[in-house]
Amino acid sequence: MEVMIILVPLALALGLAGLVGFLWSLKSGQYEDLEGAAWRAIADDDEPVAPVQPEAAPSRP
């Protein structure tokens, strides 16, 4: 049963890592716009979304 000495803390540490991850995602506002996030995942990101020059602005229908 010595294996428990490793496994139990390991399981708890993994769970705790999950919780920390969740709290971080909550704090960084990832639950503010669930509908938008669903679409962003499949949006093309080949074009830069960050500031671009006016003339280079892609215009899409």
């Binding site: 949006a43 979304v49 280079a56």
Partner: peptide, 13 residues
């Protein structure tokens, strides 16, 4: 999603 991308690109420009 189309509106979203259009607005964000248009304003970021």
């Amino acid at each position: 999603a189309g509106c979203m991308a259009k607005i964000e690109r248009g304003l970021s420009a």
